[in-house]
């Protein structure tokens, strides 16, 4: 008896989710093209965490690389989900807005510079509360300014997901790429359960969470652009595609009428079935990625 040895695809692929933020970021840039800005050795840390007995991180959980993607100028900003759940603080927020603003300036001066955001975040860092909320508002403003000149591509890989105010920032980007393991939503299930009760959302119901917030659903219902495997090469290929694509015709967050009508058509007398919603919203015309 003979048997050929077949190596399954999942063994050959390079997991992206297993990488830390820095390695994720590096894997998406053109090799040799990039340089890290305001990195760990610049040691600009959160001044607020040590005041509350919490160890800071030398990059405040935000990695910024400048270089090229698909041969085009790009800046990549990655949040580290393992540090304070990727939450936004004064410093990480300032790094993100500064990088976006500099990309806008370069774009205005003729050097169109795309931005890629790797968002693994629960939103505001509660230990920096009001400064966290303020920097998210500033990140949103900076995304909107750059988005007029060059694409802003959000990648949500997992496993933290993208929640809170940063989900609004994701909603403002030109394109959203998600893995099957990624989740995207404004309020996490625990928050809804706490605020509105377990009958509204049972946060222990994992199947329900994936059915609502998961990558397959978000892409399937047309509020995100592409579903990718947890594979560094596949994610890089997707990001390159959107860098090359340039600006979408109408950014999704300006398609107000379409979504206002869809909301008006919802039966709100009971909970909305995610699969039914996916089918009724899934129309090609809604894909922000299509030109």
């Amino acid at each position: 008896m003979s048997s050929a040895i077949v190596i399954p695809a999942y063994v050959r692929r390079h997991s992206f989710i297993e990488l830390d933020a820095r390695a994720r970021a590096q894997s998406l840039m053109d090799p040799g093209s990039w340089r890290e800005l305001v990195g760990p050795f610049d040691r600009i840390e959160s001044p607020w965490l040590p005041m509350q007995g919490i160890a800071p991180q030398s990059d405040d959980g935000c990695v910024v690389l400048k270089g090229t993607i698909a041969g085009k100028p790009a800046v990549l900003i990655a949040l580290e989900g393992k540090f304070q759940a990727g939450s936004m603080g004064e410093v990480s927020g300032a790094k993100m807005t500064a990088a976006l603003d500099l990309a806008t300036q370069d774009s205005q001066n003729g050097k169109k510079t795309a931005a890629v955001l790797l968002l693994e975040t629960g939103g505001v860092r509660l230990q920096e509360a009001n400064l966290g909320l303020a920097v998210i508002a500033e990140v949103m403003a900076s995304i909107l300014a750059l988005r007029e000149h060059a694409p802003v591509i959000t990648v949500i890989a997992g496993t933290v997901g993208c929640f809170g105010g940063m989900s609004i920032a994701a909603g403002l980007s030109s394109y959203i790429v998600m893995t099957v393991e990624a989740r995207l939503g404004l309020n996490g299930p625990e928050v809804i359960e706490q605020e509105s009760g377990i009958e509204e959302f049972d946060s222990s119901d994992k199947a329900l969470i994936w059915a609502i917030n998961g990558g397959e659903q978000r892409v399937g219902m047309g509020v995100a652009d592409e579903l990718v495997l947890d594979d560094a090469e596949k994610i890089a290929a997707s990001v390159q595609k959107y860098v090359r694509a340039g600006l979408p015709q109408v950014p999704r967050s300006q398609q107000v009428e379409l979504y206002r009508e869809r909301t008006a058509a919802l039966d709100t007398s009971r909970q909305i079935d995610p699969l039914t919603l996916r089918k009724s919203w899934n129309r090609k015309t809604n894909q922000g990625g299509a030109r």
Partner: peptide, 8 residues
């Protein structure tokens, strides 16, 4: 903070 909102 509602499930309908998250779903939609």
């Amino acid at each position: 903070y509602g499930r309908r909102e998250e779903t939609a």
